[in-house]
Design a protein around this nucleic acid. Sequence first.
DNA 1: GCCAACGTTGGC
DNA 2: GCCAACGTTGGC
Length: 155
Amino acid sequence: MPVPAVCVSSPFTHLLIHRLKHWLVKSEPEAYSWATFVLEDGTAWTGVRNYQARNNLNLMQPGDLVLFYHSVSEKAVVGLAEVAALAIPDATAEAGSPWVAVPLRPVQLLARPVALAQLKADARLVELALIRQSRLSVLPVRPEEFDAILELGAG
DNA sequence: GCCAACGTTGGC
DNA sequence: GCCAACGTTGGC
């Protein structure tokens, strides 16, 4: 009996091979703010020059939800974005370089920003990568952590 | 402005 | 391969 070359898929196959992951990206609002991101109706997330962050970009799948964090001057999660497409070469990097960008689009502004101090004070978030590895600019967020942060940001 | 935490670079 | 020097990020 011949083996089919391609597996038959159901409308739900993707749920078996990929559960939505959650992420957090950082930006200095003076450099690129949530407001600009919304005005442009999304952007390719370029400029990442750290291998660990790049690896996270490469793991992003369309539909993954992404917390948008304003670093330095604001230090708060301000919005929710979504991965619009798989990683592409970073057009701001030298051709042939290993750096990638991920198209993101805005989903919604949080009703209230969630300050870093709030995150640090929350018992559900003691393991949050943002806190444990404060220098990384593209970070994974666990589902429970993601839910907790959205709850803090709800009106 | 300072400093801790990293990451990178380059001499050996 | 080690490590010192240096650069960057980002909180405080």
